[in-house]
Computed example of a mutant assay.
Amino acid sequence: MTDITHRFVEANGIRHHVAEAGEGPLVLLCHGFPESWYSWRWQLQALAAAGYRAVAPDMRGYGQTDRPEAIERYTLLDLVGDMVALVPALGARDAVIVGHDWGAPVAWSAALLRPDVFRAVAGLSVPFLRRGLGITTAMMPRTETAQFYMLYFQEPGRAEAEFERDPRATHRALLFGGSGDAPRPVGGSPDTAVGMVPRDGGFLSRRPVPERLPTWLTEADIDFYAAEFTRTGFRGGLNWYRNIDRDFALMAPFDGLEVAVPALYIAGDRDSVVTVAAGGIHLMPTFVPDLRGTIMIPGCGHWTQQERPDEVNAALIGFLKGLP
């Protein structure tokens, strides 16, 4: 089994912690919320064994990477800038970039804006959406008694207080609740629709902590995430959501551009993002003309590469082997 090594790299004005394995063409792996490099633990080893140099950074605001204080330092352009700067800092000329959850918009946008640096892209869970996430807070659903979770995340300190009360319980609830093993939500009212948070409760109020973890998730995994977020808090990751409107404005000059490099999309058919972003998935071939596959993994939820590592590894390696 290939060893995973760790080090720090200076890029784009901040210090990045990276986990890496293998030698060969560079593959950058961008995690989402609320995760870390650790979410790519199975891909690092599989890609290394297949002849690639796999690097998974703790993204800006997470883990051992720097966490700037100002909210406006977490825009999509800052995050893309981090990945662009990491490539030469790692001693490479170009890379294939892969992203999951929030890391997917970073990967798609990096390929969109810098095809000279990123020769191919794969997005997990979140499809390519024009102008970042393709929405503003004004577009998000809300009722008198509930609001979309991204709106709940906008007020600094509120979600932090909820999540940091017990990071271990938070991760048990979030990772199980978003997985393909969780019960499907019932009820068709706007207040209980996918992603809605009750105004008199918190994000976790409808996500019970499971007594038993699914087979893909261990107590050791929960220990790792809980320790990281006990140390760092959740503010860095939540600040990504607090730039959604700013991102929409910053990406305006690039609206309508195509992702010109070879691309792959992978998702679980039980991922709530697939439900919410169905229109974006349908439109992807229009704006990603070299889309080489849309892979839906049966029974898989949101945590794609952790829930189904073998299927994801096979899809990524097959995609990589087909590149020039």
Results as ranks from 00 to 15, higher is better:
residue 1 M to K: 14
residue 8 F to N: 14
residue 9 V to L: 07
residue 18 V to A: 05
residue 24 G to S: 02
residue 27 V to N: 02
residue 27 V to G: 04
residue 27 V to S: 06
residue 29 L to N: 10
residue 31 H to N: 02
residue 31 H to V: 09
residue 41 R to C: 04
residue 42 W to K: 14
residue 51 G to A: 01
residue 55 V to R: 05
residue 55 V to W: 08
residue 59 M to G: 10
residue 62 Y to K: 00
residue 68 P to M: 09
residue 69 E to A: 15
residue 72 E to R: 14
residue 75 T to G: 06
residue 78 D to P: 00
residue 85 A to F: 04
residue 89 A to W: 04
residue 90 L to G: 11
residue 93 R to Q: 15
residue 96 V to N: 01
residue 99 G to N: 02
residue 100 H to G: 03
residue 102 W to N: 11
residue 102 W to F: 06
residue 105 P to Y: 11
residue 114 R to D: 13
residue 116 D to L: 02
residue 117 V to S: 03
residue 123 G to M: 07
residue 124 L to F: 00
residue 133 L to S: 05
residue 135 I to K: 13
residue 142 R to W: 07
residue 143 T to H: 07
residue 145 T to N: 15
residue 147 Q to L: 15
residue 151 L to I: 14
residue 151 L to F: 05
residue 152 Y to M: 01
residue 152 Y to Q: 08
residue 153 F to Y: 12
residue 161 A to E: 07
residue 162 E to C: 06
residue 163 F to C: 07
residue 165 R to L: 14
residue 165 R to E: 14
residue 172 R to Y: 05
residue 174 L to M: 13
residue 176 F to M: 10
residue 176 F to T: 01
residue 179 S to G: 03
residue 190 P to M: 10
residue 191 D to Y: 04
residue 191 D to Q: 00
residue 193 A to Y: 07
residue 197 V to R: 03
residue 197 V to T: 13
residue 198 P to I: 11
residue 206 R to H: 03
residue 206 R to K: 13
residue 210 P to I: 08
residue 216 W to H: 09
residue 219 E to T: 01
residue 221 D to K: 06
residue 221 D to G: 00
residue 225 Y to M: 07
residue 228 E to A: 12
residue 231 R to A: 15
residue 233 G to R: 04
residue 235 R to T: 15
residue 236 G to N: 11
residue 238 L to C: 00
residue 242 R to G: 09
residue 248 F to P: 01
residue 252 A to C: 13
residue 254 F to P: 12
residue 258 E to M: 15
residue 265 Y to E: 13
residue 265 Y to Q: 14
residue 266 I to R: 01
residue 266 I to A: 03
residue 267 A to G: 13
residue 268 G to C: 05
residue 271 D to H: 09
residue 276 V to Q: 00
residue 278 A to T: 03
residue 281 I to V: 15
residue 282 H to Y: 13
residue 285 P to V: 09
residue 286 T to I: 14
residue 286 T to N: 14
residue 286 T to V: 14
residue 287 F to Y: 14
residue 289 P to Y: 02
residue 293 G to C: 08
residue 295 I to S: 05
residue 296 M to Q: 15
residue 300 C to S: 05
residue 304 T to D: 00
residue 310 D to Q: 15
residue 313 N to G: 14
residue 317 I to Q: 08
residue 318 G to F: 12
residue 320 L to N: 10
